[in-house]
Design a protein around this nucleic acid. Sequence first.
DNA 1: GTATTATTGAAAACGATTTTCAATAATTAA
DNA 2: TTAATTATTGAAAATCGTTTTCAATAATAC
Lengths: 141, 141
Amino acid sequence: MHKEIEILDAFIRSKGLRRTPQRKKILSVFLSTEKHVSTQELHRLVRKKFRNIGYTTVYRTIRILLQSGLCREIDIGDGTSRYEHHYNHRHHDHLICIKCNRLIEVMDPRIERMQEKMAKERGFRPTAHRLEIFGLCRECI
Amino acid sequence: MHKEIEILDAFIRSKGLRRTPQRKKILSVFLSTEKHVSTQELHRLVRKKFRNIGYTTVYRTIRILLQSGLCREIDIGDGTSRYEHHYNHRHHDHLICIKCNRLIEVMDPRIERMQEKMAKERGFRPTAHRLEIFGLCRECI
DNA sequence: GTATTATTGAAAACGATTTTCAATAATTAA
DNA sequence: TTAATTATTGAAAATCGTTTTCAATAATAC
Ligand SMILES: [Zn+2]
Ligand SMILES: [Zn+2]
Ligand SMILES: [Zn+2]
Ligand SMILES: [Zn+2]
């Protein structure tokens, strides 16, 4: 939390924005869950701990967390964006169970390297990627 | 077009649906473009050639093309689904240029195999996947 | 031809996201 | 500390792609 608050404050200062209790509270709740939350879910969690924080403020704070590198957006293809920790969290991809919606985080450096190589061979300079594998998890097979 | 119309008709028969001129026209326009079109874009193309075909009919026909395996849905993460040919088109992934929005189709069997292997090693039974690599294309670097 | 039932298309509903705006609060300068 | 400045808040409304509704129409079966 310490380091993350510092990053947020640095970002806020660098953009001429303002430190507010809401932003600090929303960040603390975001960091307190390891789930991949939507803005609505995050708002619900925030309301549990702190009253009177509006959905719009949560939405806008997530934008700031994205820009400051504290948060990563995930799109599992159901029309709702989800968000997870990004600072100090390694890049990873997701296995998504089509039955129970479980998200399993995976990372294989060999696959990552091959993706990068394939893109470069085609004259493309990759900056980011997203790999999602859909199927059935161990419990749902 | 021949083969695809047959597939559509077979699907329609198998589900107790009805052959309509709209469905045939929409399929023919869909097949006539190699772009990755949204429903709106496809509707615009359809209207150019055939008047009086409503957006909803295009939307619903795309659903049927998806179910019958003639069409594949692509999600490049901008909130709008796009659709491309699926029949007789190999599975592939996409390089997406973040500057000019160009979509480059790519396929590397080694990467595909490694993805499958990685998922299975984690007790997961993969049924589909989506890989998108974002970056700059040759022209935009 | 008639009866049955799917299809069409305009309009409305939907749901997530984004914007608006007046009141409020954080920061800066006096 | 106070006043001035300007970003922030949050409820409500707007937006936008998608999906449903429903009455009129058209495809199929008999
Ligand atoms: Zn599962
Ligand atoms: Zn994750
Ligand atoms: Zn480009
Ligand atoms: Zn493609």
